[in-house]
């Protein structure tokens, strides 16, 4: 069975739009590490505002979402390498924490090639380290250096990992006819992807339009 390691950002975006049912339509297993479970269930359960949301997530465990043990040594290595990757005047900056690192470590440990992640910085870390440096420099107005040893080791670890977002997942679901709704396909795609963008999925308006075009052409 095909498997995808999921980050909390995608689960939050899908769940905020009542779209978690879509995961059950695919013949793919969606796995999460302990820290992602903590972020979407255990921590919000302790508060008032999002505890009901957390309970709904809790019902998905064991069915839609499978919790798998990660490799803590590998996770800590990813955190260490990522947080020594960029430095300003010799001081390394912290860019990642347990949640995202755990989802990456789980993918590597379980030999899963794809990560479902909606937040942009983990995606940049995996796909474009130089791009991540440029973003930080442009937005903070400071210069940063890349630690070549960390970059090489990270590249080696993360090589071959593919990223998809909740928007690609929903686009494929629409393409396969899972949304049997009485509206034009282009409108369903555009509105669903826009809703996910408003829920924090890192997709640009241009990319949404491109997705609409592609899915409308193939219909």
């Amino acid at each position: 069975m095909k498997r995808i390691s999921c980050d909390s950002s995608s689960i939050i975006a899908l769940s905020s739009n009542c779209l978690m049912w879509v995961l059950d339509k695919f013949e793919t297993e969606f796995i999460i590490p302990f820290y992602v479970k903590k972020e979407i269930i255990d921590t919000p359960l302790k508060g008032k505002k999002y505890s009901f949301e957390a309970m709904k997530h809790g019902l998905l465990i064991g069915n839609t979402l499978k919790v798998k043990e990660t490799d803590p040594i590998l996770r800590d290595k990813i955190i260490k390498l990522s947080n020594t990757l960029l430095s300003h005047k010799g001081k390394p900056i912290e860019i990642i924490q347990y949640g995202e690192a755990d989802a990456i470590a789980l993918a590597i440990k379980e030999d899963v090639s794809t990560l479902l992640v909606d937040e942009k910085n983990t995606r940049l870390l995996i796909e474009d380290l130089e791009g991540l440096k440029k973003v930080i420099e442009r937005r903070t107005g400071r210069d940063f250096e890349i630690n070549k040893t960390s970059a090489q080791e990270l590249n080696k670890l993360l090589k071959g990992l593919k990223i998809i977002r909740s928007t690609e997942l929903i686009a494929v679901a629409i393409k396969r006819g899972f949304f049997d709704w009485p509206y034009p396909r282009a409108d369903i795609v555009k509105n669903a992807l826009t809703a996910l963008k408003f829920s924090g999925c890192a997709i640009s308006s241009k990319e949404i339009n491109e997705t609409v075009d592609i899915l409308t052409q193939t219909h």
């Binding site: 950002s9 860019i95 949640g99 995202e100 937040e119 910085n121 924090g200």
Partner: peptide, 17 residues
């Protein structure tokens, strides 16, 4: 600026959602 969502959320003590 490039900080991961989880870390940014921890830094300012606000839920990720």
């Amino acid at each position: 600026w490039g900080v991961s969502l989880t870390l940014a959320s921890q830094m300012v003590k606000i839920p990720e959602i």
